[in-house]
Simulated scan of single mutants.
Amino acid sequence: MGVADAGGGQVKSAVRTVELLEYFAARPGMHSLGDVQQAVGYPKSSLYMLLRTLTELGWVETDGTGTRYGIGVRALLVGTSYIDGDEVVAAARPTLDRLADDTTETIHLARLDGVNIVYLATRQSQHYLRPFTRVGRRLPAHATALGKALLATYPDEAVRKLLPESLAPLTEHTVTDREQLIEELHGVRERGYALDREESTLGLRCLGVAIPYRTPARDAISCSVPVARLTPGHEQGIREALLDARDRLTLATRHL
Rank of each mutant, 00 (worst) to 15 (best):
M1T: 12
G2M: 09
G2N: 14
A4W: 13
A4N: 07
G7A: 05
G8M: 08
G9C: 11
V15E: 10
R16P: 07
T17D: 15
T17Q: 14
V18F: 07
L20K: 00
L21K: 02
M30F: 03
M30L: 14
S32N: 09
L33V: 05
V36A: 06
A39C: 15
P43A: 08
K44H: 15
S45N: 11
S46M: 07
Y48W: 13
L51G: 02
T53P: 03
L57T: 08
T62A: 04
T62C: 04
G66H: 06
G66L: 13
T67M: 14
R68M: 05
I71T: 14
G72I: 09
R74D: 06
R74T: 02
A75G: 06
L77I: 14
V78P: 06
G79I: 08
G79D: 11
S81F: 15
D97Q: 05
L99R: 01
A100E: 12
T103W: 05
T104P: 01
E105T: 10
I107K: 01
L112V: 13
N116G: 10
N116S: 13
Y119L: 04
A121N: 14
R123Q: 11
S125G: 13
H127L: 08
Y128N: 13
R130I: 00
V135P: 01
H142Q: 10
A143P: 01
A143L: 10
A145G: 14
A145Q: 07
K148E: 06
L150Q: 14
T153K: 11
E157D: 15
K161E: 05
L167V: 06
A168T: 10
P169S: 14
E172A: 10
D177Q: 11
L185A: 03
V188E: 00
E190R: 14
Y193E: 02
L195G: 01
D196T: 08
D196I: 12
E198C: 14
E198G: 07
E199I: 02
L202H: 09
G203T: 15
G203M: 15
C206I: 12
I211L: 04
P212L: 07
Y213L: 07
P216W: 00
P216D: 07
P216H: 06
A220E: 10
V225Y: 01
V225E: 02
P226K: 03
L230C: 06
R239V: 06
A241M: 06
D244H: 12
D247E: 14
T250F: 11
R254W: 11
R254I: 04
H255C: 10
